[in-house]
């Protein structure tokens, strides 16, 4: 409560308390927790929160850390501008 927060996900301001409550509410799968709270899905793509979330999830759910499945990781590893990939000869330029 108030402004003393223990931030896990810096991108979406998700606290440790938020994660624990969400797991209690029934979002008790790492994929569902991700979609419900937004962790892993901010501009850092999980680079700031990743392992911390997994640790909290494992402690709270009782699922051993070693048994968590490594998901297939979605590209891009770093955010890339659309214009870099776009084939500029393809579309008509209308600046």
């Amino acid at each position: 409560m108030g402004n003393n927060k223990e931030i896990v996900c810096f991108c979406q301001d998700v606290t440790k308390e938020d994660l624990i409550r969400s797991i209690d509410e029934g979002y008790d799968n790492i994929e569902t927790l991700k979609r419900y709270t937004g962790v892993f899905m901010g501009p850092c793509q999980g680079k700031t929160c990743g392992m911390n979330v997994l640790k909290i999830f494992s402690e709270k759910s009782g699922q051993p850390f070693e048994e968590l499945k490594v998901p297939s990781i979605r590209p891009p590893v770093v955010p890339i501008p659309l214009g870099a990939i776009a084939n500029s000869n393809n579309g008509k330029d209308d600046e």
Binding site: K5, E6, F10, K16, K47, T48, C49, M51, N52
Partner: peptide, 11 residues
């Protein structure tokens, strides 16, 4: 990657 430590006002 380095991860932040968790405590109040860690940001």
């Amino acid at each position: 990657y380095e991860y932040p430590l968790l405590f109040k006002n860690n940001d």
